[in-house]
Design a protein around this nucleic acid. Structure first.
Lengths: 210, 210
DNA sequence: TAGATTGTTAATCGATTAACAATC
DNA sequence: TAGATTGTTAATCGATTAACAATC
């Protein structure tokens, strides 16, 4: 009774659907067809119907999709109503920005602690989240059992910390360190900012040569 | 004499190759085969050879690739030796983190100014880069002609600013605002952090249900 | 009812993997 | 020379698009 696993390329489009539907909802639009949504998003109607059909039939022939209903369904699929606990490793500039900027609750997470080695940061808070001493990582994680580690620390230290987290049964990482971490049994969601910037550089240069 | 445009999925792998080769170089390794590199990166040897062959033949039969040579070639392809000027719009937490954290020079860019509306920020610097008044965007951009705008401002204001930049002939955006910006003639490199986090949420939930 | 639009099956397109001759 | 490994062509696999019967 194993249901077919949905391809990651489809899953990665879901948050984008969710955003567009949220905007439509806010704009007071109650129904939308795959054709019209495709126009707005720059996708084919076919792709939208194909994507959604991985999760069920949310539309109605001759009518289209009810915006509010589809929005809720996709939110459900994405698991926005979950509250997975997360700890952040690295309270520097990047960690600080993420902790302040991301609305964890709306995305299904709760950031319960930030860990750092800088003594002057320890004991303070970022956006209400306490900064703890890296030395206390083991005891804190053992007690609080977060599902996710957010790696906002330098590349050199990332792998070692990932291993420490793995040993504490933290099996998911949101990784901002510019390093690939390949660890058996650990799922990684990478945000490689430098890679993105280099890709941009390539695209600019390529365009210039046309 | 138009050369075949290289697919974006291949281009997006280049920075990753570049990173791995840089590490090998630092480790003093002088040669590597596609098979061994594939092992390390979790790719097939075939894919690596196929990817590289989009840009030329950098290897040698029976030997493999010279690490230092290949590293330099990929750096060249990515355009790391360029210096495209960039301005950042939004000097809040996220902008501050990016300005401090990203090594623009190493990636082919020079961040020449940050724009904000908060009067207390204007006149200060982030990592040596001055913060200017948003009112002066037009004159500054007209004079300095940056190629890229980095959008680290709230979603609500992102589109309007993108249009202002487009009108000033800034045709490339590195977009951190959680908004899709679709503008004729403007190339966008999106970093949708919230989308990434929601994808992670989905993956955790999916795994739990196995 | 007639028009619109879904969900799904089939066709196409593109990306990845396999195979292998060339050759270092 | 023999073994290794490339670059490239062919085969496979997966993702996107097109087509269409079902039906609101």
């Amino acid at each position: 009774m194993e249901k077919q696993k949905v391809s990651l390329v489809v899953v990665r489009r879901l948050p984008r659907y969710y955003r567009y539907l949220g905007d439509l909802l806010k704009a007071g639009i109650t129904k939308i067809s795959s054709k019209e949504l495709g126009n707005q998003m720059g996708l084919t109607a076919s792709q939208i119907r194909q994507d959604l059909s991985c999760f069920g039939g949310f539309g109605q022939q001759g009518y289209g999709y009810n915006v509010s209903h589809l929005y809720k369904e996709i939110g459900q699929i994405l698991g926005t109503e979950h509250i997975y606990k997360a700890v952040m490793i690295g309270g520097g500039n990047l960690g600080r920005a993420i902790a302040n900027h991301i609305e964890f609750q709306k995305r299904g997470f709760n950031l319960i602690g930030i860990f750092d080695i800088r003594q002057d940061a320890i004991g303070t808070k970022i956006n209400g989240v306490p900064i703890y001493d890296m030395k206390d990582l083991e005891s804190f994680v053992t007690e609080n059992k977060p599902a996710v580690g957010i790696l906002t620390l330098p590349r050199e230290d990332a792998f070692e910390v990932a291993v420490r987290l793995k040993n504490l049964n933290v099996e998911w990482l949101w990784n901002f360190s510019n390093d690939d971490i390949i660890l058996e049994g650990v799922g990684i969601e990478n945000v490689h900012l430098e890679d993105s910037l280099m890709t941009l550089c390539y695209r600019i240069f390529e365009k210039e040569q046309e």
